[in-house]
C-alpha cells in the first residue's frame, strides 16, 4: 500500500521579525495589502506566517487603514 505522501511544509518566518520592523505603519498600504485577501479579508496567521505579536499589530494597522479608507472593508471582486 502506498504510503500517503508526507508533506513537510517549509517553516515560515515572520516578515517583521526577519526585517526587524518594530512598528507596523497603517499608512503603508503596499505592505498591508500583502496581508489581505483579494476580498479584503485579513489573512490568517497560518497563511502569513507572522508571529503572534506582529500578526496582532498587522491586524490593528489594517483596521486603522480601513477606517481612513486606505484599504477596503470588503471588495466584491468576482
Amino acid at each position: 500500500m502506498a504510503k500517503p505522501a508526507v508533506r513537510k511544509p517549509k517553516k515560515k518566518v515572520c516578515l517583521f521579525c526577519h526585517d526587524k520592523i518594530s512598528y507596523v505603519d497603517y499608512k503603508d498600504t503596499a505592505l498591508l495589502r500583502k496581508f489581505i485577501s483579494d476580498r479584503g479579508k485579513i489573512r490568517a496567521r497560518r497563511v502569513t506566517g507572522n508571529c503572534t505579536q506582529h500578526q496582532r499589530d498587522v491586524a490593528t494597522a489594517i483596521k486603522n487603514a480601513r477606517e481612513m479608507a486606505l484599504l477596503p472593508y470588503t471588495s466584491t471582486a468576482r
Binding site: 499608512k27 480601513r66 479608507a69 486606505l70 484599504l71 477596503p72 472593508y73 471588495s75
Partner: peptide, 16 residues
C-alpha cells in the same frame, strides 16, 4: 481615491 465612498464622495485629499 477612497477605498469606499465617504459622504457620497469617492476621492479625498489626505494630509498627515
Amino acid at each position: 481615491r477612497l477605498s469606499y465612498d465617504i459622504e457620497k464622495k469617492s476621492e479625498g485629499i489626505y494630509a498627515v
